[in-house]
Design a protein around this nucleic acid. Structure first.
Lengths: 341, 341
DNA sequence: TTGTAAGCGTTATCAT
DNA sequence: ATGATAACGCTTACAA
């Protein structure tokens, strides 16, 4: 009744373990007769490889660690799905880690993953563990960075064109006549967040519109925080006429705040969000958004990582950054500010 | 430059590997002097346990397999977050598997998980692998079932009160005056889906309202399918005046279909959905929903499983089913049907 | 073609 | 308190 091991099938097939191992993996040489006996014995015993023993020997686990801040965010959900899809297709398993942007938690996950000997890591790093991640990478473990950069770490990065998309959104708003545009950003120090901020600032400057510090607020990528900050934004003596929210969760927070303040979209405030969840088109009005290429990013990150794990080309040029394009989807949550209407 | 192993620290500390192992795990006996030397050596070498070797020896991996149909569904997202939270707290890792309700895919994941020697399994099974799952469970691997049942499998089940909540929703609709209530169900054979169907039928019967087969449609838990079926429902000569959608994704499909058919909620159709995503309250009108206890279910499933893995109490009574309550959240997507208004 | 045996990096038993 | 040494279940030279 206990799980059979290779020796059991070898005995039952009346061959040596080495031979049994070879036929089960269809490698090396063996006679037709041995093949038949081993296969039959394995089937009869319901033999399944013990992969931890196998991993110990061959020094690879075919497991990938994916560390993100929160799977409950649609943003990461699609990314993870992408990674998992290519992983399973290549026979890899995905170990999921939610850090909540907490560096200490992230550290724990990273060491757990390292001790587990995962073959590679996909990291959407929270700021604060740069040196630890570098250490892991230096120890020889393949790492791919998603949406975030770690200065001095020679690893492939997958990002989207955050500065450009942010810029496009701001231009769109300016063209509509907005001057007081708020930015609900996430966490400073995060590459994509900095890029979006840069796109915001640069575009305003280029259009000769003053950048007001008070309009740049920090939502920390969480709904409640975003709710609070947009609420105070809206209550201020010079409320913004438009808002750009840097994540889906923060957009939700902003939307609730706007509603609770009795404002109407787009009449009183225009809003654009990063991320295009399936319900965005269902809102009233349908939401103008920047659709992020997260699923393809997950796919690509997974592929690159697996390539590195298997010692393929990417290994030679791993400093590379690949930038996937996001897509501006104008719907109806923006219009000219009231004073111009 | 290569990863140090226990022998390296033993040598550096000038003790035996056995002793080094003991002090690192703080077990057995050793002198203060040895402790100091080993710890220092480990620190200097940056030694980290190799858990695959450890797992092979101690026969446990501290890894849990979670098999669900799609992490991209908010439904599963919260569940997974729940199990991951308790898992990481207890030092377990979570391996994520998306089956898309595809039995073949599910089989592959299950055998992969088995070969990986995960310590336990949390399964939201698609119909069709019952015997395989039973085999795995019989082999001694702890299994907990979520939202689904496998007849003849003696394992703890975590579900919610699907029949009751479905019943409550239907009663609510009937009280409002509805007689033609459509049910967009998921996949037949799935326990929770059958329960919801049963609640629907039973309630109609109890209220002396004929159950019309044409009003029970199959959305297969996917948005597009739900879109199609509600579209044809709406186009039929006797369209329903109210709809109960059995998942968040299917509710989205229904919502799009209703909009594209030019109908208005709740004037033309009332709608209630299973699941309460954070945007539901943001819709116009805010959606009346049945809030599912998925996060707590994940927590509980994780706890039970870990208990079983560690040989605790639950092992003695593992046939148990625990039912968590969902919550009916009336908002504004329902009203009396037009002909009564 | 087949079998033997030496690892892989731990843990655990048993002397010393 | 310490150190040999034998597993754990598999892969892979190498020898036969």
């Amino acid at each position: 009744m206990k799980r059979p091991i290779l020796r059991d099938v070898a005995i039952k097939a009346q061959v040596s373990v080495g031979l049994a191992s070879r036929v089960l993996r269809n490698i090396g040489s063996f006679s037709e007769k041995s093949r038949y006996r081993v296969l039959r014995a394995a089937r009869n015993l319901d033999y399944q490889t013990n992969n931890v023993a196998r991993s110990l020997k061959i020094k690879q686990t075919r497991a990938l660690g994916v560390v993100i801040s929160d799977i409950a965010s649609h943003f990461f959900t699609l990314l993870v799905r992408g990674v998992e899809d290519v992983a399973s297709k290549s026979g890899y398993s995905v170990i999921l880690c939610n850090t909540d942007e907490n560096p200490a938690k992230e550290q724990n996950y990273l060491t757990a993953l390292y001790e587990r000997n995962v073959d590679g890591l996909i990291i959407c790093a929270s700021p604060g563990n740069d040196s630890y991640i570098k250490k892991i990478a230096r120890s020889g473990m393949p790492v791919v960075l998603v949406y975030r950069n770690i200065p001095g770490l020679h690893a492939p990065r997958i990002t989207s064109d955050d500065q450009d998309s942010s810029s496009a959104a701001i231009n769109y708003l300016i063209d509509l006549g907005h001057r007081d545009i708020a930015l609900i950003r996430g966490i400073s120090g995060v590459q994509s967040d900095e890029e979006r901020l840069a796109g915001y600032k640069k575009t305003l400057e280029r259009r000769k519109i003053p950048v007001k510090g008070g309009l740049i607020v920090n939502g920390e990528y969480v709904t409640e925080k975003a709710y609070q900050v947009t609420q105070s934004l809206l209550k201020s003596r010079t409320p913004p006429t438009a808002i750009l929210a840097c994540s889906e969760l923060m957009m939700i927070g902003a939307l609730y705040a706007i509603r609770d303040e009795g404002k109407e979209i787009p009449r009183d405030v225009s809003i654009i969000g990063f991320g295009d969840p399936s319900w965005a088109g269902l809102m009233n009005p349908p939401l103008t958004v920047i659709r992020l290429p997260n699923y393809p990013m997950g796919l690509l990150a997974g592929e690159s990582l697996i390539n590195m794990c298997e010692g393929n080309e990417l290994r030679d040029r791993p400093g590379e950054e690949v930038v996937l394009k996001s897509k501006f989807i104008p719907r109806n949550s923006c219009q000219a500010p009231k004073h111009l209407a």
